[in-house]
Amino acid sequence: MRTDVIVVAAGRGQRAGEGPPKQFRTIGGEMVLRRTLARFAGNPAIRYVLPVIHADDAVPCATAMAGIARIAAPVTGGATRQASVRAGLEALAADPPDLVLIHDAARPFASDELIARAVAAAAEHGAAVPALALTDTVKIVDRDGFSASGPDRAQLRTVQTPQSFRYDLILEAHRAAAGIDHLTDDAAVAEAAGHRVATFPGEVSNVKLTTAEDFVRAEREAALALADIRTATGFDVHAFGEGDHVMLGGIAIPHGFGLSGHSDADVVLHALTDALLGTIGAADIGHHFPPSDPEWKGASSDRFLAHAASLVRAAGGRIAHLDATVICEAPKVGPHREAMRTKIAEIAEIPLARVSVKATTSERLGFTGRREGIAALASATVRLPWTD
């Protein structure tokens, strides 16, 4: 059955404290909304994922969506969650799915197993929600702050998203509920229209990020999930040749000579590329970009580093730090250090604080001391999911 997902991302998240709306904050270096979109877009049972956003959030949403397949063009939500969901449902009407899952952007940890249960429950029942049994006792507290007897815990559940429905059922239910403002979730909308809503097992890990404390816990969990910390090194050297500048760290630096090489001979980016490839055991730069291949003649080395960084991300990893040391008598690296750091961070798609560039001479010893060329040493530290 054709199944689409509406990701509700129009809220302001004021309980999360100062900063941007919570769906545009990061966990483990990755935007919350991007994590959520990727979870569903990467599931083969899903046809399209539709973000519903605030009118002011087109730019950060585009960042979150970049490079993820099967994401529909976002639509603008309303003043309430209910209005936002209806906007998403109406947007799907031109090419309606059979089933629709409705999910909070601030729940970025839904598993493929949970998504499968949601799809199956909607197909079987027409309307269903993930639910968890309570583990704590619930009490009624009177106006004076004293505990009274509570409801029967065995009959109580906490409800999560994705909530799943037959598309035509929930669309008509939302249309019928227009103007009713006390319905807190889509299950309540379906129930108000007279439909019974089934439950299926939720997941404790499928938490909703609401407060600042939630983000602290999520960061801790993200770090634990990337427990395989690896460091590798890279080295490159190129001789001086004809030219009026050298490329170092993606920056053109004026000089009386150029650097000889098949590509643009950027020793810094080459060394960093090898270091990143080493962290995931992916051979070396020559394996991926053979100097015998005319395609890479004169090529900009930012393509090499970007490729290596993408391989780390494809392995589920996160780049923790990149460090490069340039070895030469001239040109002076210091005046260009910050521009190089900025460029490297941009290419690798990591924060500037995770990039270091240093320079030294060889005290006039060796080929660098004789001003015959430039060398670079690099190291890369990445965090990867632990595998045996």
Rank of each mutant, 00 (worst) to 15 (best):
G17L: 06
T158I: 15
I347L: 04
S149W: 12
G316P: 02
I253W: 00
G281Y: 07
W386V: 14
A376N: 02
A193Y: 03
I229N: 07
V141E: 08
E242D: 14
S111F: 11
A225E: 07
A123F: 10
G42V: 05
V355R: 00
T135Y: 12
E172H: 09
I347E: 00
I344P: 00
A330E: 12
R303D: 04
A232I: 06
R220N: 15
P51M: 04
T279C: 10
L92A: 08
K22Y: 12
R15C: 09
G77Y: 03
A282V: 05
G78Y: 07
V355P: 00
H174D: 04
A187E: 04
T63Q: 14
A239C: 11
I285L: 14
G13E: 03
R175T: 10
F240G: 01
R364L: 13
A73Q: 14
D264H: 03
R318K: 13
G256Y: 08
H321Y: 05
V189G: 01
S356A: 08
A177C: 10
S205G: 14
A123T: 10
A265P: 04
P130V: 08
E213W: 15
R157F: 12
E191P: 07
Y48F: 14
H336K: 04
T381A: 04
A79M: 12
L209S: 03
R383P: 02
L269P: 01
E349Y: 09
H321Q: 13
I350E: 01
A106P: 05
E338L: 02
A320H: 11
A282H: 10
R371Y: 10
A192K: 06
V32K: 02
L305T: 00
E242C: 08
V237R: 12
W296A: 01
A188G: 11
L248I: 00
W296R: 03
V5M: 06
I27Y: 07
S205L: 15
R34L: 08
A55P: 09
T210D: 13
L352Q: 09
P335S: 02
V141F: 06
H54W: 08
V189F: 06
D98V: 11
W296T: 02
A309M: 02
E90A: 15
E346D: 14
P290A: 08
V268K: 05
Q163M: 13
T161D: 04
A123P: 07
P162H: 04
A154K: 11
G243A: 04
P331L: 05
